[in-house]
Write a protein that binds this DNA or RNA. Structure first.
Lengths: 404, 404
DNA sequence: CCAATAAGTTCGGTGACAGAACGAATTAAT
DNA sequence: ATTAATTCGTTCTGTCACCGAACTTATTGG
């Protein structure tokens, strides 16, 4: 019903850009074949893109019959995205160029004072990184912030974010935009992790994907039918509150969810203590288990047993093709192997479970993915509400190498 | 990347159609204002639509300053949709016109021989109804079949459909298309129920909606972000297998899910029997409870307790704004009131729970909705993958009256 | 050196729109 | 009754995004 003027051009421009981004150096004739648009139109559009500085000539083809073709390529540094993963203990910042290469990753412990301090800290970290790589600020078009909790884009606030002091009372979005001087998107960190794994990790090409981050807390990100699921109040994936594990009707379960109390860090240490009387941290439990400690092995078995049930619940509700485990506990192979063995015992259809490939950087990469997708959409096409991200997978390798 | 020729026209045509469908009799000038397209363009498009027989002049405005306007309206009987709800015990068939009015609803017990017999039965029922209303077969453009189980559109088979004999071994889609002679869409019945309630029932205007059908079995349909969630193998919503209620690791839970064994018909009768030694049907349990039977009351309390947990699990995973209960058990107010009281005790965020407004006809109405949306998309616009259904809500009232 | 072939441009369309101007029809005010 | 104000709808002109065919240019293979 709204006014949609001149969409046709935008669409074509977008598919041309898509072809150039994904097809690497590519001739106009090839773009024409790929997109189905006429050679003449492609020439026009490419001329426009070149004038605006988005693409450039990079060479000519050779070695085949017929005239050589001029190939075009993205101008990599035409724009940059800032990706931020804001965790309770660590902040990570990365800068990506249009070709999806990550420059200048940086991380520091989160400023414990929270609120504006964290925002300033991130801004400083980002600008420092940009300066180090000689990236002019003007070329940074967008910042994507991944944070725990449920960011509400209408109010700019982040709900349910217990890990960072003062965030529940301020307009985080505005504060970031002011501090960074660019457009800012805020998204739940686990949601970004699904996107990350979907782009470059375990979930490539999978449209129905779940990511479970298990560490101090539990959270899940869900991609269904190629779309990120956010839910009514952006609280989808708060699976800590699933009525599995601890008694859901216990008063405590309303504060710390039943499932979280069955599988997260605190549950594991507590379980170990009840078995042995000794209070140790989670990594030590894994070490002890490797050394044959029976109590530690029991703790792992029980944790995996609840986790398997949690996965079964997600599978029953949403039917993902694959479930990716992440977080400090979820990434452990001891947990993965146990869960893999247990799922078929409590759930009838096949669900693939794997550990995340991107580790702790999944959210950061997801932030880059969503930012690049958004950028491409706003610059070169209709910002369709369902605009699927279509980013190169070829350069993915490059990205991974640069980053690691 | 695919070829998208001449999309612009389609888009405009679609929004004009939308304006006419929703705006009732409407003048071209008003359409112009509504859509933002120029008066001239509207005149062209409307002329085209009139020639093709989709819209017609219906009168003139009067009583206001200025020239009178010619108003246009849908040609209601330009096309029809066949909606079918294929249940284990009952088949329902309805015919809807383009204005979303339902004609000729019919229902009979499902042919117990299953397979082709059921398909022929439905075809007969439908054509009979069409003949009764003097609807020419040619005008039926599409049939939407709602069925239990997980229909796979690529193979045309329906998986996990235990209620209808022989359906797991045949290409149901093809068989229907052959028998009915029109394009056929098959969709899970509970998925259609969400769409139905979203269109005309409890879920109007709600983009994040869950529907739980609780009766002989349990199933759920999920609409998230305005999209129906189908999952990787179209098995999303098979919540009977949630590891809640019965022991999920019991061997039996792989055949009949743990949650189903805690809340569905069999669970209730079994619970009542273990308390009293008497085997009675579910309706009798409700009656006894109303009469003050303590055992029956306990059965209701316990069932509701598990159901509340199931809802909490869905809410934790998908964060719907509202959960609608349906099915013979879910529709009972005794269950609803108990669940409403229990949810806040086991889940921290607000989740509205209501009984379905459309009762057993939710799936049928959902089938009409999806069919009409599909029809409008294919006839008048891009069949966008995410094409939101935009059906009139004004005529909804009419529809309800006709149907009830 | 001459096909054969592929790349790219030029030229002449076409269809979907917009916008301004204008005629036509109606009511309200004088 | 005449005029002014107002709204509807058409006509005319123009623009923009595209297509298709013809043509030019560059290259390889024989």
């Amino acid at each position: 019903m709204s006014d949609l003027p001149r969409i046709s051009r935008q669409f074509s421009q977008r598919s041309v850009m898509e072809a150039i981004v994904q097809g690497g150096p590519i001739s106009r004739a090839s773009i024409s074949k790929l997109t189905g648009l006429s050679k003449q139109t492609i020439s026009e559009i490419v001329r426009g893109l070149e004038q605006e500085g988005w693409v450039q000539e990079t060479g000519r083809t050779s070695g085949h019959v017929g005239r050589t073709a001029v190939t075009y390529e993205l101008v990599h540094d035409a724009a940059y995205i800032m990706a931020v993963d804001l965790g309770g203990t660590k902040v990570r910042v990365a800068l990506t160029d249009l070709a999806c290469q990550i420059f200048a990753e940086a991380a520091t412990p989160t400023d414990p004072r929270g609120g504006q301090f964290v925002i300033d800290q991130i801004a400083a970290l980002a600008f420092q990184a940009a300066a180090r790589e000689r990236i002019p600020r003007k070329k940074i078009r967008l910042a994507v912030i991944g944070a725990p909790g449920a960011p509400d884009p209408t109010t700019g606030r982040i709900l349910l974010a217990p890990n960072i002091a003062g965030f529940d009372a301020m307009n985080v979005l505005d504060a970031f935009e002011k501090a960074l001087g660019v457009a800012v998107m805020i998204e739940n960190d686990v949601n970004l992790a699904v996107l990350g794994e979907n782009w470059l990790g375990q979930g490539q090409g999978i449209d129905n994907l779940a990511y479970i981050a298990l560490g101090t807390g539990v959270g899940s990100g869900l991609m269904l039918g190629g779309h990120l699921v956010r839910g009514a109040t952006h609280a989808a994936g708060e699976i800590g509150f699933m009525p599995i594990g601890a008694d859901p009707f216990a008063a405590e379960s309303l504060r710390t969810g039943a499932f979280e109390r069955a599988v997260a860090t605190h549950a594991m240490t507590e379980r170990y203590r009840s078995l042995t009387g000794i209070q140790v941290a989670v990594p030590a439990i894994f070490e002890n288990a490797a050394a044959g400690d029976k109590a530690a092995l029991t703790v792992l078995d029980e944790t995996a047993r609840y986790l398997a049930q949690g996965i079964a619940a997600i599978a029953a509700v949403a039917n993902p093709e694959k479930v990716i485990l992440g977080g400090s506990i979820g990434l452990r192979p001891e947990i993965l192997s146990r869960v893999k063995a247990l799922i078929p015992l409590c759930f009838p259809y096949p669900v693939t479970v794997e550990a995340g490939e991107l580790g702790a950087r999944a959210a950061l990469i997801g932030a880059a993915a969503i930012g690049l997708g958004q950028l491409h959409n706003t610059l070169f096409g209709v910002d369709a509400p369902d605009g699927r991200i279509s980013l190169p997978t070829a350069q993915a390798a490059a990205l991974k190498e640069v980053v690691l």
